[in-house]
Every structure is written in C-alpha cells, then in structure tokens.
Nucleic acid binder design. Sequence first.
DNA 1: ACCCAGGTGCTGC
DNA 2: GCAGCACATGGG
Length: 298
Amino acid sequence: MIIIKENCPDIGGICDSGQLFRMYRRTDGITFDLFAGQRHLAVRQQEPGGEIVFDCTPEEYEQYWKGYFDLGRDYKRIRNSIDPTDPFLTAAAASCGGISVLKQDVWETMISFIISQQKQIPSIRRCVEALCERFGEHYSDRDCEWFGFPSAEAIAAGGPDGLKGLSLGYRERYIYETAVQYLDHGIRDEELYSMSYENAKQYLCSFSGIGEKVANCILLFGAGMTDAFPIDVHIKDILYREYALPEEKNDVSGRDGLSLNRYREIIDEHFSRYKGAKGIIQQWIFAYELKKNVRTPR
DNA sequence: ACCCAGGTGCTGC
DNA sequence: GCAGCACATGGG
C-alpha cells in the first residue's frame, strides 16, 4: 500500500477523462481498477483531490505509477497561472483542474487512439477490452482477473482477418497494418521521448490510421509531450462557441465552418501562453465539455 | 430514416 | 495547400 496525501489528482476525473479506456469504477464509487500494459492497479480515493491509496509495492510505485500519474508535476502552479479574464477556462480548471495527464505505454496508446476515431468513448472502451480478450495474455491477482494489452506480435500473427468480430469496422485494417509496421520500424518509448515534437509526430503519422489528431493524443497521453494539443470535434465545438469572433460566426453555421488552420490560430492566441502545459489545458477543457454534455447534446 | 462519434486516406484541383 | 468523399458500427 502506498498513500499519497499532498497534491493529489482527481482519480474519478481521470477515469472519465477519455485519455485512457481501461479504468473502471467499482460499485462502491471510490475504488478504481486500472489496467495498463500487462499490469493491474487498484486505486482508492474518497473524494476528488483527497488522499489516494495505491494497492502496490513501494517499488512499483516509484518505478511506474508515480510517473504514470504524472505526480512529479506541480499542477497547482498551472491552475494558478490561468488567465482570470477567461471565464470558460477558469470554470474548466475549477471543475477539471485535478485531472493529470498520464504517461501511458506508447504502443497501447497508438492502438487505443486508432480505435477511438469516429467512436464514442463507451464504444472505444468495449473495443479495446475485446481486443485484449482476443489477443492479450491472461493474468490474475488476489482480487482480479484480466487480459494484458496485446503485443504487436500477437496482433500481426492473427493475420489481416484476425480482428473480425470485434466491432472495429474499417479500423481493422489500420490496426493490423500498424502492428506489422511497428514490428518493422517501431522504436523504443524512450527514443520517442527524446525526439523533437515535430519529428515524433512525423514518425507516428507514418503508421496506418494515425493522422494529425491521433498522433497528438499519443504524444500527449503516451509520451509526456505536454504542449501537444489534439483537435477533435469537441475541441472544435469549444473553440467555435467560446473563442471564435462574432463576425466569423455570423458567416458560418457551426464548428465545421472554420478551417483547421483557423482553429490552430485560435489555439495559438488563447493557449500559447501556457507553454509547457498547453496539452494539460486541452485535457481540462475537453473533460469539462464532456461533463457538461452528460445528456443529449444539441 | 437521420445525424453523430476524441478521423484518416485518397482523389482531384 | 484545401474541399469532398468513403470508410463500419452503435447510440440518440
């Protein structure tokens, strides 16, 4: 058991944040089961931001989970740096500023976010879990049974048709091809960490089914590149609604009325001041938007 | 029946 | 460079 008392992230908020897909809330509402790579971790937290209990050894904590939850970063400083004249961001940080950006396994993040495209989060969770059941190794500890995240070897060995029946749709081909490509030219996670943002993004985009948005998710949630800023439909909704100019909103109908480069411009204008934490801010406004849309948006 | 989801790749200009 | 389109599957 490891107990953290100071500067604790919001574990429930992380569970619902959409940056990972294999974390589950138990029926007691305060215990969470997290599956990452081949590992299982039980975490308990009575209230958001309160004391955290990790069910693991000190070695496992120091070696893996501490970095995984990004506990070495001063999140309070980031919250305090927020522009008080920005009402949306101020509200988002008040509601979701306890969410830390995770450092997940790169391969797992690649496949998870290839699956994520054109899917809602509950559906992504089911697909990732089904993939683990088919190709992952089986494990158990004293209170849990689970499947580890499958290796590239396992997926490639299944062949092009090995992914059928998992509701992956057109992403089947992307996943199989990426597994084969990864065996051919995949690099170690540490090598990716040491690359420049641009080179790392270019490398990731060389895989089938990984484009600009998914690459940014991998860099943010898997490589610790905290200035990566994935632009998805929810972020577009936010930027259009909260930050676009009234004139330009007059001309067009909705989020698709603005070009991708215009969105990049808006991000530059309002978020570049948070250098080193731009992606963390992205995660906070994304999670805040999800939370607000808890029932039938539009 | 219709629209949408943490998009990507391909075509044609 | 950018717009337009096909690509599966499930939910509202």
